[in-house]
Simulated scan of single mutants.
Amino acid sequence: MEINYWSDKEKKQNPHGLDVREVYHHSNAQIMHIKLEPGDIVKPHKTPVDVFFVVMEGEIEFKIGDETETAGNEAVIHSPANITHALKNNGNIEARVLVAKTPSPK
């Protein structure tokens, strides 16, 4: 059994300047934990694999392709491979999201 805690992981360098930590990384999937303070954004970008977001705390505005919606706790959002996506915390409290990429990017 493998148990990982995001709070035990080191912060990863990233172009968004956010608290991003890799929680899990194997050939079939990669899971990152992202903490977004009010006003924080994940800049628009594409990934070569499918991405799933799980909102754990707060509300996050998701822009996937041409669609924009806000999702809160327990929401699961899918972004297909090679589609531009971005995230923003428009709220006044910290938001946290798990980002799962499958299969794991190289």
Rank of each mutant, 00 (worst) to 15 (best):
G65A: 07
N89T: 05
A81R: 01
P80I: 02
Q30F: 00
I31V: 15
E59V: 08
A71L: 11
N89C: 06
M32Y: 04
V55W: 02
I83G: 02
E74M: 11
F62E: 00
E22M: 11
K88N: 07
I77Q: 02
N89E: 02
E94P: 00
N82M: 14
N92D: 13
E61N: 13
P38A: 09
I93E: 12
E74Y: 12
N82A: 13
P38E: 08
V54Y: 11
R21E: 08
V23H: 04
E94V: 10
G72N: 04
R21S: 11
D66M: 03
A75D: 03
V42P: 11
N90I: 03
E57I: 02
V97M: 01
F62S: 03
M56G: 08
T70C: 05
K88C: 05
H78E: 14
V54Q: 10
H45A: 07
D19V: 02
K46H: 07
T70L: 02
P80H: 03
V55K: 00
I77N: 03
V55S: 05
G91D: 01
V97H: 07
P44A: 08
G39D: 08
L18C: 10
I31Y: 03
P80G: 04
E22Q: 15
I77W: 01
N73K: 15
E37T: 08
N90D: 09
H33P: 04
S27W: 11
H26G: 11
N92M: 10
G39I: 06
D40P: 07
T47W: 00
D40C: 13
E74V: 08
E74G: 03
E61D: 13
M32T: 05
F52L: 15
P48C: 06
K43M: 13
E61A: 12
G91F: 00
E22K: 10
N73P: 04
L36C: 12
G72M: 01
I34R: 01
I93H: 07
N92S: 14
N28W: 10
G72L: 01
F62V: 05
A29L: 14
H26R: 14
G58R: 00
E67L: 13
H33I: 00
G39A: 09
I77L: 08
E59C: 06
T47F: 04
H33T: 02
V20I: 15
A29I: 06
K46A: 06
E59Y: 06
I41D: 10
E61T: 15
A86V: 08
E94I: 06
F53M: 13
M56L: 15
G39E: 04
E61Q: 15
H26C: 07
V76K: 13
A71C: 06
V20P: 07
I60K: 00
V55T: 09
I41K: 14
V97L: 05
T84A: 05
I64P: 04
I77D: 02
V20M: 12
P80C: 07
I41Q: 13
P80E: 00
S79W: 01
T47G: 10
H33A: 09
I93L: 08
